[in-house]
Design a protein around this nucleic acid. Structure first.
Lengths: 151, 151
DNA sequence: CCAAAATAGATTGCGCGCAATATAATTTTG
DNA sequence: CAAAATTATATTGCGCGCAATCTATTTTGG
């Protein structure tokens, strides 16, 4: 019956995203281990390289993560010397996240890491861009159903 | 320079997969909560519906998970009544995972869940299938670099 | 047949990811 | 201007996900 076909599709897509995310994680791990970084921590650095000096909240919005995840993660990133956490003088509730020199230097290493990933992914930059765009669009649609902003 | 463009691509794709996986997770959560299931537990059921009576090892290969993840997860699935864990008489090292009646009945509920997801994803079954295939291919290429099976 | 190697699962420790809650600072209201 | 509501971050608890280690059971080889 059609139900079984639908279930197969469900399994295929859900599992594809789930396992692609894990495959990425596992591919990055050996590349990031030498720097004492995890994949989510690397994403934080990617975000800061683009735009340094964010608040925790802004970082959370950029990465779709909440303070329960970010607070301890950022403490570890500070402990390993990549970022600094400073209370905003003007609004003491906020914590500003800024790159240290070590954090900025790491950006230079990222290029080599990227090359490795590109090789491992084994397709053209265009293919990757296309896939990324499809995924982002899908994720955006899923998120739109969760938080009906336009009330 | 080109490096910055490459970094942007890196950020886009890595982040797209990472955040799409989380978006899926968050979309499934409210649908699975009423059944006391988590997303990885649901994936185990999907796999068993297709092929009941696997060993832990076979399940791990199907889902790309190891015993460190599966052992406690399967114990929870047993505790909530969806599966049974029985030692294989012929080889006492192995544990066979089989669906309980409750586990088999849950397959009927999956159809409704799937409909919800389809609606939330907001695209045709064909689109989803296409995207799933691209992702699976990418994940396979990434995994191929990690474990050079063909030694 | 028995010791060594291999195999299947389980356990431990650590880092997310998220819900729920707590705390502290700021803003809004009465 | 003080109490209440809001906002930003931190903490706690639980379930993965994975490396490393451990135990128990085959399987192999001498």
């Amino acid at each position: 019956m059609a139900d079984d076909a639908n279930l197969a599709l469900d399994r295929q897509l859900c599992f594809a995203i789930y396992s692609a995310a894990h495959a990425f994680n596992r591919t990055y791990k050996p590349l990031l281990d030498p720097y004492g970084l995890t994949y989510p921590q690397y994403l934080v650095l990617l975000s800061l390289w683009q735009d340094d000096g964010k608040t925790v909240k802004a970082l959370g919005e950029a990465l779709h993560l909440d303070s329960g995840t970010l607070s301890p993660l950022l403490k570890r990133l500070e402990a390993s010397g990549y970022i600094e956490r400073t209370r905003d003088r003007a609004d003491e509730r906020q914590v500003l996240i800024t790159l240290t020199p070590k954090g900025r230097e790491m950006k230079g290493e990222a290029h080599g890491i990227l090359m490795q990933i590109g090789k491992a992914a084994g397709c053209t930059a265009d293919d990757l861009h296309q896939l990324g765009a499809s995924l982002q669009a899908l994720a955006d649609r899923l998120r739109a159903r969760q938080t009906p902003d336009t009330a």
